[in-house]
Design a protein around this nucleic acid. Structure first.
Lengths: 200, 200
DNA sequence: ATTATAAGTTTACGACGTAAATTAAAGGTG
DNA sequence: CACCTTTAATTTACGTCGTAAACTTATAAT
């Protein structure tokens, strides 16, 4: 089928491949997935994906970027589902948590510490930034709403870091069995908001 | 040199290998280190390490365990360097942060999200638990000291998760450039402690 | 109809983790 | 002492990986 291959066809193949890769990653972990499996899954020869992606890392970056996009979308929907700043904050937090625990493999992949130079993949950087910006914007509402004092960007990062930290420790199995993860998240959010409350 | 190989010799070889592995991991990242390199580094043939470790995962687990041990030791020293509960807490936090930022590859490896079934390596589980217990014990002091209300184990995990979260986001390059990581840590610690303060 | 081009496959290569076979050095035993 | 057993270590070999290079094949332009 030579000559041509419209941009939309390229896009379609890339999407199909990403979808298959996500499913295989979730099944066997990202390390264990090989190019040959991936190709078999798509019904093409092992070298075909190389027409659409530079190499395996490029595929991983695309999968990560698509994860960040779905993640961002979930948080945007939660943001728009409420108008009250605190309710919004809680809704975004819930959406964040639901995504992380509902798609642990995607979340793991997205925030994995040993990723090969993210900076080489602008699409991934953009998707990652998009997700971050939603969290920051959401915290801005709480400050503007007069509930909290301080730099919205800093506050957003405080809440984010605390939430992310609890989640990754949970996913890594590092939490003490005596600690209930969801209670941990609730108590931390509450303590931080109380600690920042106006006129403390 | 057959017959024999005393436990101390075994221990020595294992230690030498772990040390070399740590250095290579720090240089090239843990993924990139191969058995053959590791063997060359030690001046032995590629198969020799298999007398001392089951396989590569076993080596990784040993390196991680050794990381947790040094990590725990650093925090224990910090703990004992102070007597006042809050000062202790701060000293342990500083030691934690210094370790994570001073040995980012070790920290990455220790808390990497995609580790192959940690439970299969009791030595690693023990070392990891040891580090956690120090943090929990340190938070107990703050509660006993009357500064804070609540379950010490939960509080320890709140502070831990917040600190760990900020550090891994920093190490993964996910923080906004507008946020100063050390200011983030300071503000978060302060907010949580204030939010938990007695009679808020 | 012919040809240039590009999509896709086949083949091939070096490197990986490691199983299996082999070698060689240290006791124990006569 | 010689001889054999045991075992640390090496060598060889295998299947799999990511992917470069050569090849095949189907179309669009001439």
């Amino acid at each position: 089928m030579p000559r041509a291959l419209s941009p939309s066809q390229v896009e379609e193949f890339r999407d199909r491949l990403c979808l298959a890769a996500e499913r295989l990653f979730a099944e066997h972990g990202p390390e264990a997935v090989t190019m040959r499996q991936l190709a078999t899954e798509l019904g093409v020869s092992p070298m075909t994906p190389y027409r659409y992606f530079k190499d395996k890392d490029d595929i991983l970056a695309a999968v990560r970027a698509s994860g960040f996009d779905r993640f961002a979308k979930a948080m945007e929907a939660a943001f728009e589902s409420e108008t009250d700043p605190v309710k919004r904050s809680e809704a975004v937090g819930r959406a964040y948590t639901r995504f992380a625990l509902g798609h642990p493999d995607a979340y793991r992949l997205m925030f994995d510490l040993s990723q090969p130079n993210e900076a080489d993949y602008p699409e991934l950087v953009a998707a990652s930034r998009r997700a971050r910006d939603i969290m920051v914007g959401q915290a801005g509402g709480m400050v503007a709403g007069g509930l909290i004092d301080g730099d919205p960007e800093l506050i957003a990062h405080m809440l984010w870091a605390a939430l992310h930290g609890g989640l990754v420790l949970q996913l890594a199995g590092k939490l003490s069995p005596a600690v209930n993860p969801s209670e941990l998240r609730r108590a931390t959010f509450e303590a931080i908001v109380r600690g920042l409350a106006k006129g403390g």
